[in-house]
């Protein structure tokens, strides 16, 4: 079934929408959750929670990409779950790596503007080559390991690790260029 048809099922409050969404992208979201949290049980619970959120957010939402929307909800749930006590070795690794991308430490009075950060991130990503952009998103959005990406692309892992280091430095520059505090 096409994504838009599934979304129409949600809009018509047909519970088959949940089944179809789960059938189509449940494994994708479970794998994402498993990667980020490292726990099968937590991953299953995240997917269940995600489907509930999906049901309660469509309508009013009408996502253009159902997979991306489901992945975003799953990811947010994983981060919330990690913050409240779940394991999250990969999330720990990701946050450690992203320290390279942080602009200068703000004063205590500086305010974090998530929307401004999101806008700069979006613009920065769109300025990258497709190869670099998908590398960054696969690593820091989907939590895919460098090794897995390298195997998929058929390139040495070390080269991608170097490239990611460079991308983090580039992101930091972009954030600083826009005067962003985090």
């Amino acid at each position: 079934m096409e994504d838009q048809q599934i979304i129409e099922l949600f809009w018509s409050r047909d519970e088959a929408a949940i089944l179809m969404a789960r059938q189509k992208y449940g494994d994708f979201c479970r794998a994402l959750s498993q990667r980020l949290l490292g726990s099968t049980r937590d991953a299953e619970e995240c997917v269940s929670d995600m489907l509930l959120r999906l049901w309660s957010s469509i309508p009013p939402q009408r996502p253009k990409s159902l997979r991306a929307y489901m992945a975003k909800i799953t990811r947010n749930l994983c981060v919330d779950r990690w913050r409240s006590g779940a394991n999250g070795l990969e999330l720990k690794e990701l946050t450690a790596e992203l320290e390279d991308a942080l602009p200068g430490l703000p004063s205590a009075e500086s305010e974090f503007d998530a929307r401004a950060v999101g806008e700069v991130l979006d613009g920065w990503l769109r300025g990258l080559s497709v190869e670099d952009r998908t590398l960054f998103v696969r690593r820091y959005y989907y939590g895919e390991t460098v090794r897995s990406i390298a195997e998929g692309r058929g390139v040495p892992e070390g080269r991608l690790a170097q490239k990611l280091m460079r991308l983090r430095a580039s992101l930091r520059r972009a954030l600083e260029k826009e005067g962003i505090s985090i």
Binding site: F28, P63, K64, S65, R67, A68, Y69, A71, K72, R75, N76, V79, L91, L94, T95, L98, A101, L102, F112, A114, R115, V117, G118, L121, D122, L125, R126, V130, R133, T134, V137, R138, Y140, Y141, Y142, I182
Partner: peptide, 18 residues
């Protein structure tokens, strides 16, 4: 915070990588 902000990128970018 930065990791969370990355979750706010455009759905087309997330879809492209997926």
């Amino acid at each position: 915070r930065l990791l969370t902000s990355i979750g706010e990128i455009g759905p087309d970018l997330a879809e492209e990588a997926a």
